[in-house]
Design a protein around this nucleic acid. Structure first.
Lengths: 343, 343
DNA sequence: AATGTGAATGCAAACCTTTGCACAAAACAG
DNA sequence: CTGTTTTGTGCAAAGGTTTGCATTCACATT
């Protein structure tokens, strides 16, 4: 019956009315403006507390023309990699009174584009983007920089975009992984790569090739197979293809842990012993990885730090009026984690 | 040098100025108001398109006193369960022009409380909450209903809150799982439960007990062990404890797949064969589960649907002026998935 | 010609807050 | 006691949009 009892929250005007002063005075009292008498300041503050006054952020946003919201676009949220990056972002944003809205592109260019559009129209204060694997043109992101909307790219590069970027040094991580395989006696090392539209896949592939050649091992094209995604199921067919070769590999380095898990599944199914007959190394250090038998060797990435750093850089840019001049490109360092799936 | 070239976006007032009409006319023209001449309407629409006019949502929000944003609070975002629920929520919200902001409580009551506070102060239009395992008092959520802010609880129940809720029928899923173990000849069935502050853990435990008694099996207290969390590491100690019993179990039903994975790890490490000597069944159907050796039997939950339904119910409530009278409690149905870890 | 009708448009308030400028009162210097 | 500075407060605009009410104009009816 009394469901119309919506207490409209107390406004600055109401406090002013009760105290018989102007709204501006109340505003000043609450914002530590210097030119206000101790007396009125105290009166205002006390009443504000009593009425549980909370500033209307909507009005403030309109006035300041910002939303205190930043838009995060990732290919997907269900992978450990991106969800923990998001955790890092959140932990930087929240203490600053900022919020994030998240969009999943599902690795689709169209969806990514439409999310960007949505986020622009809600007027987010900045963007944190890791582009989809389908994204090959970047006009939809150029629009942002053209309109002076701060943007930080993370993890997956767009070479043609001259903006702040944060990456993991994939090359180094991949090089170490392959080098480790070589040093433990593997000679026929295969690589299951990911969609080559992605800088991450290209860098790891490059490191694979150059590690081989640095150790005078031949590069065999048939040892390089592309997985179309990052889940275990995407590792199945590539691995079967490798095992079916006249001379199957004695080691497989995969684009990520998901694919490595699929690979191990196929290998074990075929009755081949890991790591005695085939070593496997993944990438990401998914929390599940160490519970497989054998546990998966991998390259750990500082995902949480990646999120934090990206967010910090974005914040700096937002607060510095987006001075284009100095673009930052940061690199974080991965770490090889050796477990049971390699000798 | 020309970094001050911030094109302030076109406003309704600017269009009005150019067309020498009043802003209100422009507004009406753009919003299909009936009483507007075909001529001006077309002129306005054309110019609006030419200038790429986009309504200022900030202003609109202030006027309408909503944010078009809903707040989602989950214990954590890195688990498959919650991240896929979030996917479902997003897919319902976005087509409606709504966005979500996400808060992770990290299973902490304090953090949950502070996130609620933050979300209230940014004036989200509604809440979707799955409470932390630490949360035992619900005053911070009562505040929402008291202030007429729509709220939907999902997955984890708060009995004392009379609001819309969406659950999975855990009881049914758990009962089926245990019953399956019994039917396949297991007689010493153990259960690794989760934090018992959670309704989900309690329901599964209840189902476990009642399934045993329905089949005239004795209930042994030492076969019930509590895991303090949901990751594989939380399954380690409870499983060791079970294996160390004078009469170890011949089956283990776990609170979720994460714990089951930890359990399988310990069991295999001990040289015990799954499922011949011990059957294992988990809960959730984490995408990794089918790639273990043996692959994990589990109870699939409609996570995506859970997210969608929760969001839909919240939307309905928001759009119906939050008429308290009819509270909805919905249940979705899980499915037993038998794989290699059970006979 | 006067009145009435209806359609199309304009005015101004409302949403809430901040802030430059003006103004009044008080304090102070000469 | 006049003139100047200081201090505290109020006014009004700005931010962009919607909407109830008022206004205008053209046309039809008496």
């Amino acid at each position: 019956m009394c469901n119309k009892m919506i207490k409209s929250r107390t406004t600055i005007t109401e406090i002013a009315r009760l105290l018989k002063v102007a709204p501006s005075t109340v505003s000043r009292a609450l914002n530590n403006h210097p030119k206000i008498s101790e007396k009125t300041r105290n009166a205002v503050i006390e009443l504000a507390r009593k009425l549980n006054y909370q500033p209307n952020l909507l009005a403030l946003n309109l006035l300041k023309n910002r939303t205190n919201t930043i838009g995060v676009i990732v290919p997907e949220i269900t992978s450990y990699f991106f969800s923990s990056v998001i955790g890092g972002i959140q932990d930087v944003l929240n203490p600053q009174g900022l919020n994030m809205i998240i969009g999943q592109s599902n690795e689709s260019y169209q969806e990514e584009k439409s999310i960007v559009q949505t986020f622009v129209s809600v007027r987010v204060d900045g963007f944190l983007i890791s582009p989809s694997s389908e994204t090959k043109t970047f006009d939809h992101l150029k629009v942002l920089t053209d309109n002076n909307i701060p943007l930080v790219i993370f993890d997956r590069d767009c070479e043609e975009l001259n903006v702040d970027k944060v990456f993991v040094d994939e090359y180094k991580g991949a090089f170490q992984a392959v080098e480790y395989l070589i040093k433990t006696g593997c000679r026929r090392i295969a690589h299951i790569t990911g969609p080559l539209s992605l800088s991450t896949a290209r860098h790891r592939l490059k490191a694979y090739k150059e590690a081989l050649s640095a150790h005078n091992l031949p590069l065999k094209e048939e040892y390089i197979v592309e997985a179309s995604g990052f889940a275990p199921e995407h590792g199945i067919d590539p691995t079967k293809k490798l095992l079916a070769l006249p001379q199957p590999p004695d080691a497989i380095f995969t684009i990520n842990d998901g694919v490595a898990i699929g690979a191990m599944f196929v290998i074990k199914e075929a009755g081949i012993v890991i790591p005695n007959e085939i070593s496997v190394i993944g990438f990401d250090d998914d929390p599940h990885s160490c519970y497989f038998k054998p546990s998966l060797s991998t390259v750990w990435q500082p995902t949480y730090e990646l999120g934090m750093l990206s967010a910090r850089i974005l914040l700096k840019r937002i607060n510095s009026n987006n001075d284009i001049s100095k673009v930052r490109v940061e690199k974080l360092f991965p770490e090889l984690v050796i477990r049971g799936s390699s000798k």
